[in-house]
Design a protein around this nucleic acid. Structure first.
Lengths: 240, 240
DNA sequence: GAGATTATGTCAGCCGCTGACATCAGGCAA
DNA sequence: TTGCCTGATGTCAGCGGCTGACATAATCTC
């Protein structure tokens, strides 16, 4: 079984049609099973909790054996984090597509915002995507096992990002610390933004106003990176 | 069974004597068992790998039942990360002790360097501490499960650090993003430094020259935080 | 339609981890 | 010293995540 193809489609395209044209029945079936498993897992995790859901339950919900589940996902976490994983792949693609002259941090900033915009537009119509993302991020942050797995994935992601940055800027990734550092710092800022977003979500109205709320939070965090590193934390030094 | 007391002692003090004076036989025995388990785990993990070592083996090496192991550690990872955990607690103490007027980033810088100096001075004589630390960090970085658990612990650590920073600087931790951001960025930089250190260790002579090598790597990474965030990555802009 | 591929089901089994209960050792007071 | 009380340990049974091996059934290729 080949590894699943990456990311979600660009908005406007029809993924199902494009897929069935290029691939056979076997591949389509596999894709459907995989999506069904992710869906069932997501639903069960949210209603019963992550630890309270057994792999057997997920498999049974899709009418598939437990062994089959583990042929699609290396472990229980992978099923929960599949959507995040797609988003990360999509971010990489968008970052690679940024214009060459753009400085590194702005390039990443644009890529992350576009990632969330594309995310909420695809897969789930009518903005359901952002609500689903919120639920998922909250699930991750409140489940130690999932948080651990997610952070480990993020570390891999940062390695990929560092390589792209080094190539973009034409520096030696072995000698120059800046690519790895910026990738790590960016990852830290985005994760902190996710935390703030999920924490604030309880206070906000429950309606889904698209990805702009989350994007604003991320932008705000990136803006505060400089002030946070500054020696002077008096309010006059902060960009308020 | 009460949670184990924190951190390693200040250099110069005699922990065993101080302990036996204040606590009874029961407590001392528990402490010895715990240390023996950590030691055995460390040794077995390094020789057979983490996944290749069962909890039964560790327990058997200390002549203790598997059930007892799980009364000391919530899971297998915790035994592997116990030393790191002590170091993190010690860092928190040192950060709390930094003078009030000091800016946040320098305070953290001094605290992390002192943490490693104290670490190599205590527990393991003649610099064995740093070699042990190197082996441990390498084990963590090369073992996905351990890396995940370690990163999760780091996230907790960052929350604690953010609270201390907010209190030090007298800002509102709920409204001001800087404490959480700086804690996260600092954590990211230190982890990146650890990675670079372990990667470079293969090329360096195997002799243990104390913690100064690692400390220099960390300092260098902290120095490069500003340049990494800068828009201009030309070498003239970098602080070489 | 026959044969090669590949996904799936079944089964057995290891290992991490936990609750329940019995047992034993250290702490404490009479 | 004796004897009770608290708490650490051992034993046992059992669940759930995860894997290898093999048989079966579905798709693909010609």
């Amino acid at each position: 079984m080949a590894p699943t193809s990456t990311a979600f489609p660009a908005p406007g395209s029809d993924p199902a049609a494009a897929e069935s044209a290029t691939t056979g029945l076997r591949e389509r079936k596999k894709q459907r099973t995989r999506e069904a498993l992710v869906d069932a897992a997501h639903r069960l995790f949210l209603s019963q909790g992550y630890a309270g859901t057994t792999v057997d339950e997920i498999a049974a919900a899709v009418d598939v054996s437990q062994r089959t589940f583990f042929r699609y996902f290396a472990n229980k976490e992978e099923a929960a984090l599949a959507v995040m994983s797609d988003a990360e792949d999509h971010f990489i693609e968008l970052l690679r597509a940024r214009p060459a002259g753009e400085p590194p941090l702005p390039a990443m900033r644009e890529a992350i915002c576009a990632t969330w915009r594309d995310f909420s537009a695809s897969h789930h119509p009518a903005g359901r995507g952002v609500t689903a993302a919120l639920e998922l991020v909250q699930l991750i942050e409140t489940t130690p096992t999932l948080l651990a797995a997610h952070l480990r994935r993020s570390a891999d992601q940062e390695r990929r990002v560092a390589e792209i940055l080094a190539a973009r800027e034409g520096v030696d990734p072995a000698a120059d610390l800046r690519p790895r550092l910026l990738a790590a710092v960016f990852g830290a800022a985005v994760r902190t933004a996710h935390l703030a977003w999920t924490a604030g979500a309880a206070a906000r109205p429950a309606e889904d106003d698209g990805p702009e709320g989350l994007i604003a939070v991320i932008q705000h965090h990136l803006d505060q990176l400089g002030p946070a590193l500054a020696a002077d934390w008096s309010d006059t030094a902060r960009g308020i």
